[in-house]
Amino acid sequence: MKKRKLEVAVISDVHLGTYGCHADELIAYLNSIKPKKLVLNGDIIDIWQFSKRYFPPSHLKVLKKVIGMASNGTEVYYITGNHDEMLRKFADTSMGNFKIVDKLILNLDGKKAWFFHGDVFDVSIQNAKWLAKLGGYGYDLLILINRMTNWALSKLGREKYSLSKKIKNSVKSAIKYINDFENTAADLAIENEYDYVICGHIHQPKKELYENKHGSCTYLNSGDWVENLTALEYSFKRWKIYRYNHDKLLPFFVDDDLKELDMQDLIASITKEASTDQVKEKEKETEGDIID
């Protein structure tokens, strides 16, 4: 099976290190694409809830896969979010094709795209971080309960059910928060003359043209890899929402060695690939000296 070639792929809210993360499915997706640019739009590693007791091989394999893509020519941008905010101290760090940033602006076929995670709009995070973290633990517990419920439903031949999505969609304050988030992001994008604004954070995949009296822009959200299993893809001058559950070709891209990777393998792989990049850079410098 040939990999799909993309200009840009965007994923966010993977939450590696939590029970809700669908790492196996994400690896299958990453195996199926060949993007020129991969944007990791925040909350990839859940440092808030990180535990040495739970970080399975498939979660490590996601990190290895991303680093492998960078070493093979894909430009990888890691935009920091609230759950991986500890990485913000490394903002503007660059290691070959892998870059850590707080926000990103790309020119896509003559149009400006503004990428950021979106937690800057979250009042609970800005003013009461402990409350937001407590909510994160509760959400993770809800996902764990939901997994057990869906296991039972599948045994009975019933359709899977999302408890957290049902709760969020039934609470008016949650709906208002999401609408306010989207409107604020779009208004700021129009004010700064961006054509696209691309966020994560609220776990709600969306693509919508937004207009106000000052202009218009396209609001996009990459969703998450906890409930929705979605990404954003840009190719042929168009954006689309990718949905894992609608992709019938994904079984052909599932990795067979997910359970064989451990921490030592990952570290060895990173070290090897970093050394390879350094050698390539030295070779380029040497070639430049010869030409001079």
Rank of each mutant, 00 (worst) to 15 (best):
R4N: 08
K5T: 05
L6A: 11
A9M: 13
I11R: 09
Y19L: 12
Y19D: 06
C21V: 15
Y29E: 06
N31P: 11
L38P: 00
L38F: 06
V39W: 03
I45C: 03
D46S: 01
D46C: 02
Q49T: 07
Q49S: 05
K52I: 13
P56K: 02
L60C: 12
K61G: 07
L63N: 02
V66E: 03
A70M: 06
S71G: 12
N72A: 13
V76H: 10
G81Q: 02
H83R: 02
F90L: 13
M95T: 05
M95K: 12
K99H: 15
K99F: 13
I100A: 06
V101W: 00
D102F: 05
N107K: 11
K112F: 04
K112L: 14
A113D: 02
F115G: 00
H117L: 00
D119N: 10
D122E: 14
I125V: 12
W130D: 06
G135H: 01
G136T: 03
G138S: 14
D140N: 15
I145V: 09
E159Y: 10
K160Q: 15
Y161W: 05
Y161G: 02
K166I: 08
S170P: 10
S170K: 12
V171K: 01
K172E: 10
K172L: 14
A174D: 10
N179D: 14
N183M: 15
T184W: 13
D187N: 09
I190G: 03
D195T: 04
Y196T: 06
G200K: 04
Q204F: 04
K206S: 15
E208I: 12
E208C: 15
Y210L: 05
K213P: 07
G215I: 03
T218P: 05
Y219I: 00
N221L: 02
G223W: 08
D224T: 01
L232G: 03
R238K: 13
I241H: 04
Y242K: 06
N245T: 06
K248I: 12
L249H: 12
L249N: 09
F253A: 07
L261P: 15
D262F: 11
D262R: 05
M263I: 02
Q264D: 11
K272T: 10
A274T: 11
K280N: 14
E283G: 08
E285F: 06
E287L: 14
G288K: 11
I290V: 08
I290G: 00
I291C: 03
